[in-house]
Every structure is written in C-alpha cells, then in structure tokens.
Amino acid sequence: MVWLAAAVLAVLATDALHTRLPPSGGASRQMGFVPDPDLAKVLSLGFGAVLADFYWLQAIQAAGGDVRITPELGDHLGRLIDLVTTLNPRVDHPYRFAAIWMTASEQNVRTANRLLARGIEYHPDEWRNYFYLGFNHFFYLLENDRAAEWLDRASRLPGAPRYLPRLAARLKSESAEIEVAAVFLQEMLNTSQDDVAKEGYRAALDEIEVEQSARLLDGARARFQDRNGRDLRTVEELVAGESAVLRTLPAAEPLALPSALRRGSTWVLDPVSDRIVSTYYGKRYRLHVGESDRQRAEGWAEERRIRERVQGMEGSRGETRHEPSNHDR
C-alpha cells in the first residue's frame, strides 16, 4: 500500500515537473538541427546509409503536410538533402526531391542545382536529374542557354523522352516560353513520384492554360484595334456587337478546376498593367523567380488545401484533364 502510494506520488511529481519544461515548439521540430555533412560522414562509422535514411525521412516530414515552402524551409531542406546525399551519395530520389521543393528563392534553386549536379556525378545515366537541372535553369533562373545544354545531355541518355531535342531547340530560340514550360511541367507531372509536387505542377499547368487563353485574347485585341482603329474598352467587346473578332471568350478559369472551386471568373482589362487578365489569377503568368514565385508557392499550397477539402467532400471524383479547346473564330 505504501509502495503504491509512493509510486503514484512519484509519477504525479514527475509529470508535474515535466509539464513545467518548455515544450518543443512546432517550428523547432520542423527545422531541427542538421549536422555538418562532412563531420557526420566521418562519424557515421560506416552507418552512413542508415543515417541518410533517417535524415531523408526528416526531409519528407519537413516538406510534407500543410506547410508553406518558404525560402527558410527551402534552406533547411537543402541542408538536409546535402547531408543525406553526403552520407549516401548513391540515393536516387532525394536529388530531385531537392529540385522539386527548393524553389522559393533563387538561392534555394541554386542549392538544388548543386545537389542535382552531385546526383549527376553519382548517377551519370539518370536523365531525369539533367532534365530537372534544365527545368530549374529555364523555369526559375531564366537561363535558357544553360537549360538547353542540360536538356541536350539528358536527351542522349537511355530512357529520355524523344521530344527532348526539340524542347532544347526551342529553348535556344528563346520563343514560346510557356509552351516549353508546359512541356516541362507535363513531363515532371508524368514522372514525379511525389503527390504534393504533382499538385504543384498541375496548378502551374492550369495557370499556363489560362495564360495561353490570355495570349489568344491579346491576339484578338490586336485584330480588334486593326479593324476598329481603337482599343478595347471592355474585354466583352471582343465578342459583342458588329466589331466582334471572336465567337466566344475562352474560359477564364482552368478547365480541370472542380466545380466547387469555380468562382465564375471573367476576363478584365487590368487598369494598372493595361493587360487582359483573368480575375481568377488577377495577373498574367510570368516565368520569374522571387517575390511572385513565393506568392505562387503560397497559391499552390492554398489551392492544394482547398482541393483536398473538396475531394474530401465530393468523395473520389475523378480529376480529368481536358485539352484546351480552340475558341478562335
């Protein structure tokens, strides 16, 4: 009896003391200490592979879930993947994991590129690492020449898609950026094993789809000016009245968008930029790194949350991707 009382007392006292300790915050759990890769490699005593797995799981935890990929988190992921690939350079996916997630700042992208280069060093026959490197140069850093170089090299490797040489050629001509981006993104979407990243690619493809429509409207606007000698006052003028140049306006929202998410967006003339924009995005698509890119990342995260909620409500409603239809008259 005495022992029981003593035991209960001891447990209660311990618990009380425990609750007084500062709890480990969510932030510190998300971005824990990452040891120096070279030191860790030395001290791993031949257990590098398993340590690499451990930190790889940490990287997945850090990037997964409803987190915003900030440049800080990108740095953290960079440190983790650097550690993982130093401890065991023979890993495969983590190199591209870095490329997928480290996009929130130019520095993130450059670090990811360095990691991809290490991946290429250890997997010289893996075309996807070259492809991702090309994509980063093109999509985030606007370095099309270098992107083309990497695509060239990727195209010579076994398993590489047959269209890569054409893609590389188009990159060199510096034209049709968004078509190239669409091809890239479609390829990443097809080959990615990462569901969350796939959502991101889909969102970017959606945006490109709307951008393509917007560019179509730009063309129509020019014809309108030619024909009427004046600019549009509203976008609707393109399809209304005698001066119409189009039969219908293209959708101002991505076609794949679930109906629950549709906002009935329309095309408007943005008074500041004087460009035709979809109210869905409120701006025109641009290949760019920096602030807007961070916003895009935030947008992706937001989108993803909504989609998940919607999918939860609607059950397993299949998401099919429609080919953009031609609205040109």
């Binding site: 790889w56 997945i60 890993v91 495969d92 996916h93 094993q193 990462d194």
Partner: peptide
C-alpha cells in the same frame, strides 16, 4: 513506410 520512394532500399 514513412517514405514514399525507395522504401525497399530503406
């Protein structure tokens, strides 16, 4: 199972 890739390797 915590990793979505290379599970067998882990």
């Amino acid at each position: 199972s915590l990793s979505y890739v290379e599970g067998e390797r882990i």
